[in-house]
Amino acid sequence: MQALRLPAGWGARTQTLSLQAGADGSTFTTVKAAAAYAFDPAADNTVTLTLPATVQRWFRLTVTANNGWPAGQLSEFEVRSS
């Protein structure tokens, strides 16, 4: 599971994100295709991504759109097993 957070006091925004994972830090496979995710202050500006079962050491998050600012924004990127 991946939890992505913005500061709780920030306004709502939608960001388009994709996620890749890899075992060696140089070869990555897409585990979450690009999709729009809504960060909402009413939900603590937290988005949770559920991933297929995988054992990886490295993760690469790509932000390709953000309607709240002209750049990708995250304050926390948490990776944990269930």
Rank of each mutant, 00 (worst) to 15 (best):
80 R>N: 05
14 T>W: 07
81 S>I: 07
28 F>N: 00
68 G>Q: 12
69 W>D: 13
78 E>M: 01
55 V>N: 15
61 L>A: 01
12 A>M: 03
78 E>N: 08
3 A>Q: 06
17 L>A: 02
14 T>D: 13
48 T>F: 13
7 P>G: 06
52 P>H: 12
75 S>T: 09
81 S>M: 11
34 A>C: 06
24 D>T: 08
69 W>M: 05
56 Q>N: 15
45 N>C: 10
32 K>Y: 00
18 S>V: 07
10 W>V: 03
56 Q>C: 15
44 D>A: 14
55 V>L: 15
76 E>D: 02
35 A>P: 02
25 G>N: 02
11 G>Q: 10
50 T>V: 12
75 S>C: 08
70 P>D: 12
50 T>M: 14
14 T>G: 14
66 N>A: 11
5 R>H: 01
18 S>M: 01
79 V>L: 05
36 A>E: 05
67 N>A: 13
45 N>K: 08
44 D>Q: 12
15 Q>D: 07
41 P>L: 12
53 A>G: 10
57 R>Q: 09
46 T>L: 13
36 A>C: 07
30 T>S: 10
35 A>R: 00
54 T>V: 13
74 L>V: 06
43 A>W: 01
18 S>H: 01
26 S>K: 11
21 A>V: 14
7 P>C: 04
17 L>R: 10
54 T>G: 15
66 N>Q: 05
41 P>W: 09
36 A>H: 08
29 T>G: 09
44 D>C: 13
78 E>H: 01
55 V>T: 14
50 T>H: 12
33 A>G: 15
18 S>Y: 01
70 P>A: 05
9 G>F: 00
36 A>N: 10
